[in-house]
Every structure is written in C-alpha cells, then in structure tokens.
Simulated assay, not measured.
Amino acid sequence: MILYGLKTCDTCRKALKSLPNAEFRDVRTDGVPQDVMGAALERFGGALLNRKSTTWRGLSESERDQSPLELLAAHPSLMKRPLIEAQGALYLGWGSDTQSALLG
C-alpha cells in the first residue's frame, strides 16, 4: 500500500497513523508516478484537484484553465489528499468510505 500526500498534511498524518504498513511518498519531493496519476485522473476526474486550497485560490484564471495533469505537475499540493494505492485500487481522501474499505 502506498500513500501519496504531504508530510505537513494533517489528514495524511491521520491516514498514516491508521495504516502503519503504508509506504508514504511526499508528492512534493517524490512525485506521483505518471501511470498512477493517469489512473487517478481517469477514476476521480476533477475531484483530484483540491479547489478549496490556498494554492488554488492563488492561481490566476489562465492557470486554472490548464489541464488537471499540467496543474498537478506544476503544483503538486493541489492534489486532494491522500491518494492511496492499495492492491490495484485507488482511494482519494480519508473519508469514512475510504476508511471502511481499507480498515474493514
């Protein structure tokens, strides 16, 4: 299981605490592999972008018009977190649906 997120993100920390066997990868330093990002974009679409973030609010209109893939490459912190890859499935966020799927 791989958890993609930010080491400073409280939600990512909560998820890591609940998933002690997960391997953590910081999206700012390690990035997200292209195939995983493509699959996540296909599965979650625009929900992969955190439009409530400070980073999003700081973008100009022309920057916001870029494709999600370009935006996430330029601004990794725009990704909704955490993105969890487990047994070939992808999960986004740390809501009750993700928790019940991964914790049983």
Score class of each variant (00 low, 15 high):
8 T>L: 11
52 K>I: 01
7 K>C: 07
77 S>E: 09
67 S>G: 10
35 D>T: 13
72 L>Y: 00
36 V>L: 12
43 R>P: 01
74 A>M: 11
15 A>H: 07
22 A>G: 14
77 S>T: 13
34 Q>H: 13
20 P>I: 10
54 T>S: 11
30 D>L: 11
73 A>E: 15
50 N>S: 04
71 L>A: 09
37 M>A: 14
7 K>H: 10
68 P>I: 03
61 E>T: 08
38 G>A: 12
10 D>A: 13
75 H>C: 09
32 V>E: 07
69 L>H: 14
9 C>N: 09
14 K>G: 06
16 L>Q: 13
34 Q>A: 14
2 I>Y: 02
59 L>W: 03
9 C>M: 11
37 M>N: 11
56 W>D: 01
63 E>C: 06
70 E>W: 04
33 P>Y: 14
77 S>G: 09
55 T>L: 03
19 L>C: 13
12 C>L: 09
22 A>L: 12
6 L>W: 11
75 H>S: 07
51 R>E: 01
62 S>M: 07
33 P>V: 13
25 R>V: 07
13 R>P: 07
36 V>D: 08
24 F>P: 03
26 D>L: 09
7 K>R: 13
18 S>A: 15
51 R>P: 00
55 T>V: 10
39 A>V: 07
56 W>R: 05
25 R>L: 11
56 W>C: 02
12 C>Q: 09
24 F>I: 08
53 S>W: 02
52 K>T: 04
9 C>V: 04
54 T>F: 01
68 P>N: 11
4 Y>G: 05
56 W>S: 03
48 L>G: 01
62 S>A: 12
47 A>I: 03
43 R>C: 08
2 I>T: 15
3 L>K: 04
11 T>D: 07
21 N>R: 14
27 V>M: 14
48 L>W: 00
33 P>M: 13
45 G>V: 04
22 A>M: 13
4 Y>P: 02
65 D>Y: 03
45 G>T: 04
2 I>K: 15
6 L>R: 13
3 L>D: 03
72 L>V: 03
17 K>D: 08
44 F>W: 02
58 G>K: 15
55 T>E: 01
8 T>D: 10
28 R>Q: 06
2 I>S: 06
42 E>C: 10
41 L>K: 08
19 L>N: 14
16 L>P: 04
53 S>P: 05
17 K>H: 11
